[in-house]
Structure formats: structure tokens, C-alpha cells
Design a protein around this nucleic acid. Structure first.
Lengths: 335, 335
DNA sequence: GTGAAAGCGCTAACAG
DNA sequence: CTGTTAGCGCTTTCAC
């Protein structure tokens, strides 16, 4: 990499002249500016990012901590973050916490040494189960703002972007109730997560408002066992005529299992899930889904963080929570 | 963040003493080392990463450019890269090229300003179609090594990690031939990619060795149309009794479509695809798959890059290509 | 055993 | 209009 020093030497001017010329300073003569810029272009000069970061005490880099990159929803949020960040001239450093509290802490510490200006993260499963928040608080006290999305720690004072999980599941369940379904089941492999619990609550609320509707709930511990668990569940509860799936795969698996057992979908069983568009293609009929607008969630999180980073004034504790509304997309697995 | 300067001041010693003490220098007295370390621990001192990078002229950061983060295979490779990098004390900066040449170039340039020590990437679709490689060569000439994985540019001299696409598809097809299938189809929505072409070649080779077997190929341009396209394809080719799918979703969609049309799987139609374990759960019977060991691919790529970065000597052009062998996992969609 | 000083690449206040 | 200087945080050589 060419440095200012080298350009200065070759041009027989001082380093600061070169620097100013490249930054279009008023102080420098037109002719000099031209000469400097030409040489810089020739050598493909680019200011050293590290030196700039050191000088200006900010890195224009965002640390992103994702619990699971193989989760389609989380990956899509990352996509949204990356795009928004790039648009604003920020890079992202990605760490994967693997749903582990320890990795989450170490990732936070690893990047809190000047590598990044702030964090965007979704809380790991273990962290939620243990209800641990001190590492977040510590990071914020060090002066590094955090924006949490989807799975948030309520007790941490920071900006947040969440989904209307409760309402969305409530409305989806209502939808099945209105189809006159009498035995609506709830299937989830994310019972440990805050969002999983919210979704279950939405389901329960809708049932409680129905006419003598009883909850039937299947909680799957290991997603790999979903097909077997769901099959056994259907066999043990033969009158199920509706399914709300809280995670990204149980919905299509429920449809395929129902078909396999000889039910007609949606005539005999109606299904709504939280899958993405592409996964909803994995069953015939296509799964009716609750779309979370993951990219928007990511974009909003990035916007909030960048705004905070660039507003020196806004250091106040005026933290806000944005709720990104889901959409219920009815395909062919509902009436 | 606490700095050496602040510690030095508080301890009434010089900055260099503090620095040496923290690095366990022989030069410093035991007593001093102890005092320094205690205060450092108290203030949770961490050396500023940016300053270190500037001083040592390396960032311990790897730039990763992924064409599509929503592709399960690519996301899994990223996972492998992240894990391996973290283990070796490296961070990763992730850019998503979105299959666009322009974004790929800008990502490369953006990070080639001292932000990263080297790159790991899979070539974007547009780049492969246009067969453009100058931006890679330029980056390498700037002194930033590149490791390519999966979709590689053959003409670029660099380390590579690839999958045995040709062989794997050849063997999978042979498998169906040995089941005595007479009309084996090939379905792909990745015809643009180098790996897509290799897979097709493997399929064609296996057929050519069979007894009067004729290729039947469906190329899908827009993955969103897969269900309709595959259905129409089956209806137009009623004697299909075997399917090789080159991408990550056509396999399960083919099974679901076949069932929907009244075929039995695997009795009437046998299917093998390139899906991941979780997607293979999206059909009953489960899809028999060719597993690519994405995490290993990522880990290998990271190892190769880090080795090159840390071997000052190995600047030679002794570039190597590692081939990660796939495994054929027979589930229930084959005999 | 400890400290002063230089330097990584850059910007900016201040001199000239 | 251009140059000198200091300093961001750190390591390291060289004096003391």
C-alpha cells in the first residue's frame, strides 16, 4: 500500500500538503492539488483505514453477534444489517455465539478493544435461559452502544428492534378459529426463547377467547427429531384440525406429515407457520406463513446504531424500541 | 478504554515500563510487574487493537465475501470460517456480494485499505458469467492473499478449496442407474455457476455409460418458480423414474411434487439432491442427499489463509487446491 | 531495572 | 500557499 509519505517524497512536498490536497483543502493551490491527485490515482492510493481509526478514535465498524447463522431468519437479518451498514460506510465484524453465553461474552470482549464502534446482536439461547445480562451492561458502560433485535434482554437499557410476536401469533390463531377449527395445536422447537414464549402466549390468548377451545401443545427439544415427534403427536391427537407453528420448519413438516397420514390440507387440517418464502415452497400445498420482514429488522437495527454513533449529542438515555409488524401471508395451507 | 498512558501516570512509571510489564518482559522487576498487572486488571485494560494493527502492520482480520448469505451451504461455510478464524485469534469482516460483480469489486476494494490481512471468498454468479478476474489479480498483487472456495476462478493463482462436484454427481447418478432406473432427470437452478455445470457433466457422464439412457434436463431460472416448473416438467415427462437435483431445494420439491402427482417415492421415482440435513427433513420420505461438508470447507479455507499469512517465507507461488470429498447419505427417497 | 524516543499512517493546529 | 509539529496507542531499540 502506498502511503502519504511515499507520495510526498516523490512529489517533493510535505506529507501534510499531500494530505490536505487529497482532502481538497482550501489551503492548497490548484496546481498542487492536481499534481497530488494524479500521482495518488496512478498509485491507487487509499488512506490506511487503521491509521484513520486510530486518529479519529472510531472504526466505522459494527460488531454483529448472531446466535446461529444457519437460522434463515437470523441470516436474513444479518443480510439487512450488512446492506444498511455498507450504505452508510460501515463494515461489519461478525461473530457467531452458537447460542452459547460464554461465546457471547468472549465475542463481546474480543471486539470491545477498539475493534468496533458498537454492537448489534440477538441474545443467545443460553443467555436467555440463564437470564444473564451483566456482560451487556458492562459493554454499554464502556461506551459501546448495543442494539438488540428479535431476542432482546428487557432489563438492559438499549435500543431494540422486535417483532410483534404475541399479536402476530394471536391473529394467526384467530384466523384458524374463524375457519371454525375446533382443535388447534401449537408446535414449537424454540420454547427456550423469549420469542417462543411470546408466540405461545398469543396462541393461548386466542384460544381462550374461543368457544371451549383447549390448547394442545407440542414442544420439540431437538429439531432433528421434528418429523418423528410431529408424526407421533398427530397420531396421539387424532382430532387436530389446525396447527400454528412457532419456528421456521415445523410448519412444512406438519403439512407433509399430515398428508402422509392421509389428511387433506387444508380441508382436514389448516396450518400456519413462521417460515420464510423459500421454505414455504417445501410443501404442497404451500404453507401459509407469518412473515417477519427480517431484512427490515436488520436495516432498522443498523440505522438505530449508526444514528446513535453519529449523534454525539444523543448520548442521553432516550432508548427506543421499534416494533416491526409481521404480515400474515395466506397461501394454500389455510382455507 | 484505559490506555497505557493512564496506567503509567497512575503508577508513576513510564509508558514503556507498563508495556513491558504487561508483556512479561525480562527487563522489568517482579514487584513492578505485579503492581502494573494489578492495576491493569482493576481497570480491565485491553491493548487497543487499532494501535496494535497500525504498529504491527497486520490486523488479524480476514475479509470474507459471500455471494448469498441466505444460501444454506454458503452460510454454513461462513460458520466454519468463523469458527476456525476465532480459534486462531482472527476476526472476520463479512461482505455480501449479492451475486453481483460490482459489489464484489467494491467489497474487495473497501477492505483492501488495511482493514484486513487477506480474503476468503466464493466467486459471485455475475463474475462467473462474465468471467472477470482482474479484480482478484489486482488484490493479490497488492499483497493481500485470497483463498477461494466452492465457486473458484480457475485462472487466478491462489489457494482453493473445492468440492468433488463432478465425481459426486457422477456417483449419485450411477447409483440410480444401478437401481435400474431408465429415465433419470437432472434438475438445477444453478446452471450459471461453475459448480452447476460440473454437476451436470457428472450426470451426463454417468448416463453416457449406461445402457441407452437419455438425458432429461430441467433448468430453472428463478428458484421461486421451482414448484410450478417441476410440476410441469413431470407432466411433460411422464416416464421419469429418477431425479438428480443439483441445488439445495429442487430435491425436496421434486419429491413433494411427485407425491402430489400420485407417484410413490422411491418405488416409482428415486431422488437424490444436494440439500442439507435440515432441508432433507422437508419431505416424507426424507431426501437422500449429497453432503458437502460445508463447515469443513470453511475451516480448510481459513486454515490455508492463516497459514499463508503467518508464513513470511511461503510467499512463493506454491498455491494448492484442496478437494473436500462429499458423502452420499442414502435416506428414504432411494431404494 | 527503568525511561526516553522513534515510528506505524494519518490529520490538524499552528507557523511561516 | 506550504511546512512543521504534535499526537492517536502501542512496541521496541537504545540510553542511562
Amino acid at each position: 500500500m502506498v502511503t502519504l509519505k511515499q507520495l510526498a517524497k516523490e512529489l517533493n512536498v510535505s506529507i501534510s500538503t499531500v494530505s490536505k490536497a487529497l482532502n481538497n483543502s482550501e489551503e492548497i493551490g490548484e496546481e498542487t492539488i492536481k499534481r497530488v491527485k494524479e500521482l495518488a490515482a496512478l498509485y491507487n492510493y487509499k488512506p490506511n483505514k487503521v491509521a484513520l481509526s486510530l486518529k479519529q478514535n472510531k472504526t466505522k465498524t459494527i460488531g454483529v453477534i448472531i446466535p446461529d447463522i444457519l437460522n434463515y431468519f437470523l441470516a436474513k437479518v444479518l443480510f439487512g444489517i450488512e446492506r444498511e451498514a455498507t450504505e452508510h460506510g460501515y463494515n461489519i465484524m461478525t461473530c457467531i455465539s452458537n447460542e452459547s453465553l460464554e461465546k457471547e461474552i468472549s465475542s463481546l470482549q474480543l471486539l470491545a478493544n477498539g475493534s468496533v464502534d458498537g454492537f448489534i446482536l440477538a441474545v443467545s439461547k443460553e443467555t436467555q435461559v440463564k437470564n444473564e445480562i451483566s456482560h451487556f451492561v458492562k459493554t454499554i458502560n464502556q461506551g459501546l452502544p448495543i442494539v438488540m433485535f428479535d431476542r432482546v434482554a428487557n432489563d438492559v437499557m438499549c435500543d431494540k428492534v422486535i417483532v410483534d410476536d404475541f399479536d402476530a401469533t394471536y391473529r394467526a390463531t384467530k384466523n384458524l378459529v374463524n375457519e371454525n377449527r375446533k382443535n388447534i395445536a401449537f408446535i414449537s422447537n424454540i420454547d427456550d426463547l423469549s420469542v417462543g414464549k411470546l408466540r405461545e402466549k398469543g396462541y393461548l390468548k386466542a384460544l381462550s377467547e374461543g368457544n371451549n377451545l383447549k390448547p394442545v401443545v407440542l414442544k420439540i427439544n431437538n429439531p432433528e427429531d421434528s418429523p418423528q415427534n410431529i408424526k407421533a403427536f398427530f397420531q396421539a391427537n387424532k382430532t387436530i384440525d389446525g396447527v400454528i407453528s412457532a419456528d421456521s420448519s415445523s410448519g412444512v413438516i406438519a403439512i407433509n406429515t399430515a398428508l402422509n397420514l392421509g389428511y387433506r390440507v387444508p380441508e382436514d387440517i389448516s396450518v400456519i407457520g413462521y417460515s420464510s418464502k423459500s421454505v414455504s415452497n417445501h410443501s404442497i400445498p404451500r404453507l401459509s406463513t407469518i412473515r417477519q420482514h427480517a431484512k427490515e429488522i436488520g436495516a432498522n437495527a443498523a440505522q438505530m446504531l449508526i444514528k446513535r454513533l453519529e449523534n454525539k449529542a444523543g448520548e442521553a438515555d432516550d432508548f427506543s424500541t421499534r416494533i416491526i409488524k409481521t404480515s400474515l401471508i395466506k397461501s394454500d395451507s389455510t382455507l
